[in-house]
Write a protein that binds this DNA or RNA. Structure first.
Lengths: 325, 325
DNA sequence: TTGTATGCGTTATCAG
DNA sequence: CTGATAACGCATACAA
């Protein structure tokens, strides 16, 4: 428990060199005579010297860490996303700050405050107001993750338009007529795009789309609850198109739990292709998005000196049993 | 975008006061003549001055942020845990750094490096070696989360001994004889304690416990896979006791998927009481632990000036249908 | 190759 | 109340 850690000056004194040399040795920059380097290294080791991030940060005028802002980290999507982000950041020697907004009112202020602690911030779509994003971008480099590109702010997202292809598959290839869309577009750019693609496919197939989506959260438990409401009445839909795999799995579990057959009684589809989706019976038809790479690309963009790129990562339709295939 | 932000000195110059006064005004400490205060405030507002976290941190010799080290954030357990931790930290105005070890070899080094960036580190059990923990504790305040208490290092964990009570319930109340334990004690103090409690209950009931646990990961998908291996053979167990709810849900889904009845053909139990557990059919018998509070208590302990407390939070047996009740 | 001196942006002490 | 001025710990031009 903490006798104060040694400083450059102390190490320099003990090793009989200047603080500049200690700095050069400890950070591996500049040329130092091997013999001297050895001596300094020895002292550093012995006294357990570790450069103060505080002093270094101030001198270099950079924090050496980045932040990622997300709505909440429930489910495999955010786990993977953050993992990809974190890995890339650590690889570059940067620390990772997290800010979960959890729909709190103070979230915007927290995010703004975070800008004073990091060299860059990745903001997940649907977490803060556009104005906040603008103000943020004026203070520190920002990358929008899974959200609408804004002005000159770089962004990374997945191609949600594949949802149209999936819907077409259900409508045309399987001939389903009564589809419902499960998931709330409110506060989620991704879900908004998916819902729009769902509607568009209906228009193109000449089938009337439902008036609105079934607004629920994005977790498994939300799906189970939705299944209860959707499958109880007499007018059961032909297919339930979910905004993500988690809710789809929840709906699937709920349906199976009430003794319904999938896809016999009702078809179910998701979005993401998480691990569970290939494991359940029947396998979940879904759209694969490179979640981990989404996070990684975001981190890279954030740490790249300056970029105004707008990346759209490809997605892929994955047909399994739950749609009727 | 960023024209450099103004510094104290610049604000002081413009407002025709000393930097000390600017500091006093901006941080609201000390006495300043109202008139002067107004003038300074005016300039601060106009030029958008915000004290640099870098400069402040160095002067105050504290980072204003803490870190939490965990194995990986898959599943609701870690989501909740981190959420509880983060909430408490934010409440105290501290930033939150994350370090996912993901079984990487370099994890210990990363954690050590992190000690230079924060005022305290919460380390989840099973993430780093005891030596690393010791070295870490010499550098910065540490709290062990869900792990074995070590020396004078404070810790927070849940009471895993309830697993003995659950096992007794299965053995004695339901009369099951062939139980299996699913989950790997390797690298998880929690699972280790649960496995031990499972064995102890067997001894007390005079029933022979299985030779070893079925070693699998802690995610839903792992449970599904385990179900395949466990339920295929001719010698099906009476009950499958899982190390956590996620794997239990996976096993349940796997069992139901193969047309087995639960608890008719096989009983299944978990640990955690996550949201899904009360929603599935049949409801999952489990042990509730206050995950969120675990994270929150950890953050509080970490930020308390000095503590050597070893908190053990209570757990509660939750009987639902999956055990046969 | 090595050392000296200065700056990074605050906070805080101590006179006035 | 207010203002100089000294830390805080390190990096780095610049000089030697």
């Amino acid at each position: 428990m903490g006798s104060r850690r040694p400083t450059v000056r102390e190490i320099a004194e003990i090793a009989q060199v200047s603080i500049a040399t200690v700095s050069r040795v400890s950070r591996g920059t500049g040329q130092v005579r091997p013999e001297l380097r050895q001596r300094v290294l020895q002292v550093i080791e012995e006294y357990g010297y570790r450069p103060s991030q505080l002093g270094r940060a101030l001198a270099e005028r950079k924090h050496g860490s980045v932040a990622i802002v997300f709505p909440g980290l429930a489910g495999p999507y955010f786990s993977e996303l953050i993992q990809g982000f974190e890995y890339e950041a650590m690889e570059a020697g940067a620390g990772v700050h997290i800010v979960g907004t959890h729909k709190r009112a103070a979230a915007d202020a927290d995010v703004l405050a975070m800008s004073a602690r990091v060299d860059g911030i990745a903001v997940h779509g649907g977490t803060v107001k556009p104005e906040t994003l603008q103000r943020l971008a004026a203070e520190v480099p920002v990358v929008v993750l899974a959200g609408q590109p804004l002005d000159g702010i770089p962004s990374v997202r997945a191609d949600n338009s594949q949802m149209a292809e999936l819907t077409r598959h259900l409508l045309v290839d399987h001939g389903y007529r009564r589809l419902v869309f499960v998931g709330s577009p409110d506060g989620s750019p991704d879900v908004t795009e998916r819902w729009e693609a769902f509607q568009q496919a209906h228009r193109e197939a000449g089938v009337e789309a439902p008036a609105g989506p079934v607004k629920i959260g994005l977790q498994q438990s939300d799906g189970v609850i939705a299944a209860g409401e959707l499958l109880n009445g007499p007018s059961r839909p032909d297919a339930i198109v979910c905004a993500n795999d988690e809710t789809a799995l929840g709906v699937l579990i709920g349906a199976l739990g009430r003794g319904l057959r999938v896809p016999g009684d009702v078809a179910i589809t998701g979005f993401d292709d998480v691990a569970m989706s290939s494991l359940v019976q029947p396998g979940l038809t879904t759209i694969r998005q490179p979640i981990r790479e989404l996070g990684a690309a975001t981190a890279r963009l954030l740490m790249a000196d300056q970029s105004t790129e707008n990346l759209v990562l490809p997605t892929e339709l994955v047909l399994r049993g739950s749609c009727g295939c």
